[in-house]
Every structure is written in C-alpha cells, then in structure tokens.
Design a protein around this nucleic acid. Sequence first.
RNA 1: GUGAGUGUAGUUCAAUUGGUUAGAGCACUGGAUUGUGGUUCCAGAUGUUGGGGGUUCAAGUCCCCUCACUCACCCCA
Length: 425
Amino acid sequence: MQFERVKGTYDMLGKHAVLFKNVTDKLKITMEGYGFSYAQTAVLQPMEMFKRAVGNETDIVNKEMFEIKSKSGKEYVLKPEETAPLMRSVIESNFVQGLEVKKLYYITPLFRHERPQKGRFREFYQYGVETLNSSDFRRDCELIMLGEGILKAFEIKKYKIEINSIGCRTCRPEYTAKLKKYFSEKSSGLCKQCRVRLDSNPLRVLDCKESACKIVASGAPKMIDSLCEECKTDFERVKGCLDEFKIDYTLNPMIVRGLDYYTKTVFEFIETGDALGSQSTLIGGGRYDMLSKELGGQDMPSCGFAGGIERLILSIPENIRKTIESENVIDAFIVHFGKETAKAAFSLTESLRQRSIRAEILFETDKIKKQLSLASGKARLAVIIGEEEIKDKTVLIKNLADQKQEKIEFNADKIAEYIKGVKDV
RNA sequence: GUGAGUGUAGUUCAAUUGGUUAGAGCACUGGAUUGUGGUUCCAGAUGUUGGGGGUUCAAGUCCCCUCACUCACCCCA
C-alpha cells in the first residue's frame, strides 16, 4: 500500500531540503542583524482568537481555517497566520512590560484551506517580524528596510514597494461611511460580491479585481484624504523617512490588508518579474496598534510583516538558487580501500568528528572510485587511507576542487588542524 | 467553492491519421582503469502508459467514469 502526500502540502528531500534549510538560515541571520530575536508559538491555537483578531468576515477565518475539535468539545485551529498567536502569547506571559520595546521574528508553518496554486499551499511557511510596543514612525521604516535587506540577501531585484495608510479608530469609520455612501450611489456598476461587501466591509471593494469594480473604485474617495491629524502626520513622517533613505516606493491608495487588525501604515513588496504567477505578493505588513487591546492586553502599538518562504524561493534568481542549494559541503570524506583500512578510517572519522570536523565515511563499499565520486559531491576534501598509508602511518589529503593531494602524518589532531587550515582559505 | 489543462522509466520528455516487441537524455549499476572523483567511451537494468470501464481486428493515442497534479478565478504570504 502506497500513500500520497496531502493536497497542498509538500515534502522536502535532497536539494529541496538543503535549499530550504539554507534559505531559512540566511533569513535568520538577516532578521537577527536588524535586532529581532527568535520566537515560536504552537501550531495548535484557540479558534476564537483568530475570529477576534483577524476578523470574522475575512476569508481566512471565514472559510480557510483547518478546524479541530477536541474530545471535550474545545475548538482549535491549525494557525493560519502568526501575528495573532504571537500577540496572544506576549499578552499571556506579560512579555512586554511598561515602555519596553520587543522585536521578535519567526519562521513557522501555517495552514490555510485554499486551492493550491503557484506560490500557494495549504501547509506553507512564513517568516516575519513584529516590533511590539512602539508607535514610532521609524519602526515602520525599519521594517521596510529589513524587507529590502532580505530581498537583497537573495539578490532578488525585480520587486516594487507599495505603501498606504488605512487610518485608525478615529478616522477609518468616517472614511468607510464616505466610501459606503459613494459605492451605494454607484452600486449598479459593482459585481455581485461587492454589493454584499458594501455593507460588511466597503474597504474590500477597493481591492476587487473585477474590471467594472476597478473603474468605480478608481473614482472613490481615498483614505489618505480622510486621515485624521495624527494619522496624517504619521504617514507624512513615514514617507519622509523612506525618502531620506532613498527607498523607492509608490503610493497605492488601493492597498487594503486582508486582515482586520491593521491600522495606519500598510505596505506590500510585490514581485514584478514572472517568478510568481498571479500570487505576486512577496511580503505584506503594516501597523496594528489596536490588536493587543482587542485580545485583552494592554495598549501596545506595534507593527510587523510576513513573507512566504515558498514565494521567496521562487523569486530567487536561478543561478543564486543553485548556489544556495549546493551549500551543503561537509569538510572531509574519509576514503578507505584495501585490507584493514576500514577500521582505521572509521576511527579516524570519529576522531575528526570529535574535533568539530564535519566528516563522512562510506562503509558499504571499499571501492575507491565509488567513494571518491560520492565525496566529490559532498565534501571539499578527501582523506585517503590505503594499505600503504597504514604501513607509513600517513594519510593522503586530496583537495577535490583542484586535485592536489598531500601526505600527512596519521594523527587526528594534525589532520584536523590541516583540514581547518584549508577550511579558512 | 468555480473554471481550464495535464497524467508515459527515479526524473525531463518522445512515440506518424489508432498499427507489430512503448523510445531517448539525465540519473542509476557494471566495465574500459584491481591506488584516485566531477570530462570521455562501452554495456546493462527500469514501465500495470495514474486507475477502472467502453468502442475497435487493433488503444499510450478515441469515448465515459474516477483519482492525482498543475494553472487561473477568489483570497492571501
């Protein structure tokens, strides 16, 4: 009996696994470089939390959650996004106290029950960061800089940054009222779905892809014209800061995040090549000043972003991707052949491993060709032990890149030292 | 949830209007080369043509069902 993988999931073996591992390693280094520290929450989360935080009317909670009912009747979900669980955890443990600012990053699997497509899976990975307890506009900019830093780290150049402000508790209701009025007057020009949205969430009409709706939406009042004083000055400051750092962005009054907790600054990094098909959002984020209170915590203005790892990987230029997926070299492959050499080779392998040398050995054959051929794909150096070497108490160390080889005394410390010397070059 | 497309060896793909024993590259195994890999040469192994049913003298090819995958809509990372 053979079994197939679950729809919308994927396994990682071989090169794919190496690629994923090296990409996430690189992401961690970049995010840590901007002062964020690692955080992790459970995959299983309380269902109600997402309804509250993300919004009951959003597609994510409305139709995309994997729901699990415990034997006692409690309702859990496989988390569909990370900001809410992280915020829940922070509140629950009083992780942020007083005026302190915490910066966290994560790399986590998420689950959404959607039809799979290019750059879209049911079980997928997101990396992301959250800057907690700061309303400083420079935090918004810092996020965008990090976003650029990440794409730069992978040499992704075909992208654009779009920003918008969607206001706060004070000015958004006023704006949505205006919008509702405008769209109601033109409702005949809207698609069926948008006529429904009109009542539940008129902001989403702006985001509709129907060409008729787009036309109507293009004439709609814009949020940035309706911002309150505070939101307006904040947005001006964010833009000013981006300008100062010469960050290239465009204003897109149509950006509306699909999660209800966002306020003020929102932004997207959009892939502009053809790597992603129609799922072109590489990174999406913004400010969510009200989320903490919404989840029962203290007032904690915060901002963050998330990016899909599958989409990131798809966007990496092919030559860079190939380099990243071959970065799995071990230091030394121990090659043995002839009588009584395997034993010595095994014990040398273990000695080297204990001296922090990444070493590998093949027991299953004593053919030198097979071993060297395997070594050349995995290691930079081959440590060769034959009958002669056993007699001489030496080993041959061969550089698999330039074919040069050298005779060294059979002494684990000396061999380890030699290998480390080569490693540093 | 809706629509379209595709299923052939481990993998990428061939196979004339339906026509004999379904082929090739890469990968794999062995050898040329019993002490030297990534280049070369030679040889070898590999298939329920996704599964089931039907039409036909004859089906990888046509029809129906089913399963899987892919892409797009929707939405998002």
